[in-house]
C-alpha cells in the first residue's frame, strides 16, 4: 500500500524492482511452456530419452553449471560492493561475471559443435533415422539450450552496458537499481540452467 506523492517525477526504486520481477515472471512462463513440452515427450518416449541423455557430455554440462553458479556469485558480489561505494571492486566483479558468461557460451559452442559434427541437428537425416524419441529429445535439447543460450548472450550484452554505466558513474552507491535488476535477470538465467542441467544431462 503506497501513499507516496506523485508531484515530482523521482525514480521509484521499489517500482523498478517490481517491474523487473514481473518481467521475470514472463520469462519463467516462456520457459514453462517448453518444460511442458519436455514432460509430454519424456512421458511418451521414456526409453529413448534415457539413451539420448547418456550421449550428452556430462563433463561439459557440469563445467557449465559451475561456471554459471560462480557467475551468479560474482554478480551478487558486484552489487553488494557498489552499495558500500567500492566502485573498482564492483567493476572487477562485473567483468568477471561477463567473462564467465562468455566462457559458458564458448563451452556451449564446442558442445553443440560436436553434436553437429556427428550430423545430429533438427531435421537432419542422421537424426530422423534414429527414431522419433531421439528426434524429439534432440529437438528439445537444441531449442531449450538454444533459447537459454540466447538469454545468456542477452545477459552478457546487458552486463556490458552496466559495466560502461558504472565506469561513467551513472551506476554508483546511490543509484544501483539498474545493476540490481540486471543481477536479477542474470540469476534467472542461472536458475533456468539449474533446471535444464538435470533434465537433459542427469536424469537417465
Amino acid at each position: 500500500m503506497s501513499n507516496m506523492s506523485i508531484t515530482e517525477h523521482r525514480p521509484d526504486y521499489e517500482g523498478s524492482r517490481l517491474g523487473m520481477w514481473i518481467f521475470l515472471f514472463t520469462e519463467m512462463l516462456l520457459f514453462a511452456g517448453l518444460f511442458l513440452l519436455y514432460s509430454v515427450f519424456r512421458t511418451r518416449y521414456s526409453p529413448e530419452f534415457h539413451t539420448s541423455s547418456v550421449e550428452l557430455s556430462r563433463t561439459a554440462g557440469t563445467v557449465n553449471t559451475i561456471i554459471l553458479l560462480t557467475s551468479s556469485l560474482t554478480m551478487a558480489l558486484s552489487i553488494s560492493v557498489i552499495k558500500s561505494g567500492r566502485r573498482g571492486m564492483s567493476l572487477l566483479f562485473q567483468s568477471l561475471t561477463v567473462s564467465l558468461g562468455i566462457l559458458f557460451l564458448v563451452n556451449k559452442y564446442f558442445e553443440w559443435g560436436a553434436k553437429l559434427w556427428h550430423g545430429i541437428y533438427p531435421n537432419s537425416p542422421e537424426l530422423l533415422q534414429r527414431g522419433k524419441g531421439k528426434t524429439m529429445f534432440y529437438g528439445l535439447y537444441y531449442l531449450m539450450t538454444g533459447l537459454h543460450g540466447l538469454h545468456v548472450l542477452a545477459g552478457v550484452i546487458l552486463l556490458t552496458i552496466m559495466f560502461i554505466m558504472t565506469v561513467n558513474n551513472r551506476i554508483n552507491r546511490e543509484q544501483y537499481v539498474r545493476l540490481e535488476n540486471s543481477g536479477l535477470y542474470w540469476h534467472l538465467v542461472d536458475v533456468v540452467w539449474v533446471y535444464l542441467f538435470p533434465v537433459f544431462y542427469l536424469i537417465n
Partner: peptide, 28 residues
C-alpha cells in the same frame, strides 16, 4: 498468459524454418 503465446508462435516459426517436428506425428 502472453509469454505462452510468444513461445507457441516461436515454435511454429521454428517448425516451418528448421522442421523440429514437435507438431509432426511422422517425426514423433
Amino acid at each position: 498468459a502472453t509469454p505462452v503465446l510468444a513461445l507457441t508462435l516461436l515454435l511454429l516459426i521454428f517448425e516451418r524454418v528448421f522442421g523440429l517436428g514437435f507438431f509432426d506425428p511422422a517425426k514423433g
